[in-house]
Design a binder for these strands. Structure first.
Lengths: 315, 315
DNA sequence: AATTCGACGCATGAATCGACGCAACTCGTA
DNA sequence: TACGAGTTGCGTCGATTCATGCGTCGAATT
């Protein structure tokens, strides 16, 4: 019983791919059981499994399947290539197939992330995200990796009414990755920036990205969750007295300018109010509200707030 | 002491299978009398009988014989999908009830956590939670610290329609803490346990607690998020073929037994299906569903699943 | 004398095989 | 911007291979 003879189905399930894909990999790339008589069932040895795991890991990191297979065949235990798989000018075609997530030309990492997500492989997802954040930082990772994948996922999900579980899993992984960033970077000083979703707004990931970026920049913040009613927001502002408030609205339906007005009119009025997110309409914003265009801009604006506070606090 | 040595024929008749099948099970799966000299007659002890009964029950429920045998050999007395799930001692717990559970006498840590939550001080919240998990483990922390606080918070929030932001913040912190636990403990082996919320169910924190506890015990798992439609759940099961599925339902309205039935009837039927959470009603569960009473029980059951199936080579 | 043993073989249903094709994605080119 | 070419994962179909429960047979056990 020590000689495990794993069947195709078992292996496929373990890798999170379809049985047919296993067969395809075998006949297209030669990536199959070391001993296999045509017509007979395939029996995967542990060594074969390792090879397949390598294949999985490489594709999860954005390597084109054909290349990954070539690699896996001759160097089963190979680690990942260089620090950042910068693919530029390479002619290696890499398309997607089957039920995938469209990521466009967002780089190999996005493709790998999409692939790992389709397999519900949270470990691979975490690995990709962590690596990206470690090498490129939060802002770049958000703009070039996470947002494209999440957008593609949402689009596909809206169209197909499927992949909901994939979307949730990825969201959770992203959220966790950002949380890890916040935890890793020690928060110095009291949080003077409050991040909050608009009322009824349930997408909090962009705010979490901003939070992680702030933490990365050494700026402490406070992040309320999704669906924050106006009353709760005002209460939080009143009790914590933040210098700046960022209010996120993903869709137009949650972008009620009244919330912003209430913020500006309430007691302990924050120095600065940001209306972030694509939901807000520029022409309907009350005066005194800043509308950052993207994550980087929001980050720099927030940093400016922090700096100005430091100066004023010097007295 | 009444160590009845049952003969093969008697055992076969009692189990309702052929004598030859008994012999086959012995030589094919090693599922036979603990002591047996080749050529001599087999004598089955009560312990052996229990093992065989397990085997029969599992196969009767559609589990593949080879896997069932593996389970029966090393986890003979584990709780199993029985025809009449009469395991129920009345609601000794249930977090979604109506009992008044303010933080009350849940220990000083709970009080401190509640205070930090009121201040929206995520750093302090994290600190308290992390310390608790580090000293007492996930299960204890959940039962004695987090659940009381969350329950009290939810109750007050339901009554006052306020403190929503506090609840969200605490939830996020708890979620992050669990995620950190999962990340810290390296996942060994492929995840064979799938955790998922029932359709429409939006409380995923208890499942995350289970996931963290599993990770703490070195058991890999896969956690889908909240609000998983039945179709998505079935798709995930089909694609990943988990050994066990835990379906969480917090309130009665989300506890549709149809979901469980679909799980058991679908292709790639999981070996074990758990109906977890206070939403489920014991008398409405389909046969073959296990209903763990609390986090600790769910953990031990899941651990049993892992043990019975884990003999794979480490990657 | 009644069972049981070990070995062999058979019938059947599940799993897999090989081949084919589809759909979706990316990229180069017009 | 649109369109064709190349990739790739996976669903489907008829045939085949495997796994599994059990019957049969001569010899041994109880």
């Amino acid at each position: 019983m020590a000689d495990e003879a794993l069947s195709a189905g078992v292996v496929a399930r373990r890798l999170g791919i379809a049985v047919t894909t296993l067969r395809t990999w075998h006949q297209r790339y030669g990536l199959g059981p070391s001993e296999h008589v045509p017509g007979r069932h395939r029996r995967y040895t542990p060594a074969d499994l390792i090879r397949l795991e390598t294949m999985r890991r490489l594709t999860a990191n954005g390597v084109a399947p054909a290349e990954a297979a070539r690699w896996a065949v001759q160097a089963p235990d190979a680690a990942l290539p260089g620090p950042a798989p910068r693919t530029e000018g390479r002619g290696a075609r890499d398309g997607g197939g089957g039920a995938t997530i469209p990521v466009g030309r967002s780089g190999p990492a996005a493709r790998g992330l999409a692939r790992a997500a389709m397999r519900l492989d949270s470990n691979a997802i975490n690995e990709v995200i962590d690596r990206a954040i470690r090498t490129g930082g939060v802002v770049v990772t958000w703009d070039t990796l996470l947002r494209p994948v999440l957008a593609g996922l949402g689009e596909r999900h809206a169209a197909t009414a499927a992949l909901i579980e994939v979307e949730h899993l990825v969201s959770r992984c992203v959220s966790e990755a950002f949380a890890a960033v916040v935890r890793a970077h020690a928060p110095n000083g009291p949080p003077r920036i409050l991040l909050s979703c608009a009322d009824e707004e349930q997408h909090s990931l962009p705010l979490e990205a901003l939070g992680a970026a702030l933490a990365e920049a050494g700026i402490a913040h406070r992040l309320l969750g999704a669906r924050v009613p106006v009353r709760a927001l005002l209460g939080a502002v009143h009790r914590t007295g933040p210098a700046a408030v960022v209010l996120w609205s993903q869709t137009r339906s949650t972008a009620d300018p009244t919330q912003l007005t209430a913020l500006l009119a309430g007691p302990r009025r924050p120095l600065l109010v940001f209306a972030a997110g694509p939901g807000w309409r520029a022409d309907s914003l009350p005066a005194g509200v800043v509308r950052p265009a993207n994550l980087a801009e929001a980050l720099s604006l927030a940093a400016a707030v922090r700096d100005s506070l430091d100066q004023s606090a010097a007295g």
